[in-house]
């Protein structure tokens, strides 16, 4: 009986391995050369997020509504203090952030700005709105020198 169980377990594991190996092409796709179409598709995904983040950053009400977030209740938008994403210093994070009084990531700081100066409602740190805001901030500072920890 015990032997039969071992055999069945072995067959089951074998099937799992076969199933897993049938997906290898997909799992290891990054090892293959990229086609121009793929690169374009990757950039499209990125730029779409930049655009959404840009609209959120500039206080676009329709975009906030679609993503069900309230980034400000004072009328202020992020870009009013950070034109072109300036003075965000995304390349300095993570670092000790004085206002929050803790070691913080860029996402922590984004939420602090939403809650404090903008008096908005803190957003899901892994949600769509946060990803879009983060994407826009990094993109607008593209080419800046990475300098984590700098205050």
């Amino acid at each position: 009986m015990k032997g039969t169980r071992y055999v069945l377990t072995g067959v089951f594991l074998g099937l799992l391995v076969m199933l897993a190996s049938s997906g290898t092409d997909q799992a290891l796709a990054h090892k293959e050369k990229h086609t121009p179409d793929q690169l374009k598709a990757f950039e499209d995904v990125f730029m779409e997020q930049v655009k959404i983040g840009d609209l959120l950053f500039h206080g676009d009400g329709a975009t906030e509504k679609k993503l069900r977030v309230t980034l400000s209740k004072t009328g202020m938008a992020c870009a009013m203090c950070h034109p072109f994403g300036s003075d965000n210093h995304p390349y300095e994070f993570p670092k000790f952030q004085e206002q929050i009084n803790k070691f913080a990531t860029l996402r922590d700081m984004i939420n602090w700005c939403i809650e404090k100066p903008n008096e908005g409602v803190k957003i899901d740190p892994d949600g769509d709105a946060m990803k879009a805001l983060e994407t826009y901030i990094y993109w607008s500072n593209k080419g800046s020198k990475l300098d984590p920890g700098r205050h």
Partner: peptide, 23 residues
Amino acid sequence: DNINQILQPRIADREWPYYGAYK
């Protein structure tokens, strides 16, 4: 303070219509 900072202009307002125009 901004010695490491390089900026680029925003992109979303270069298309029309602008408001809530993303997919």
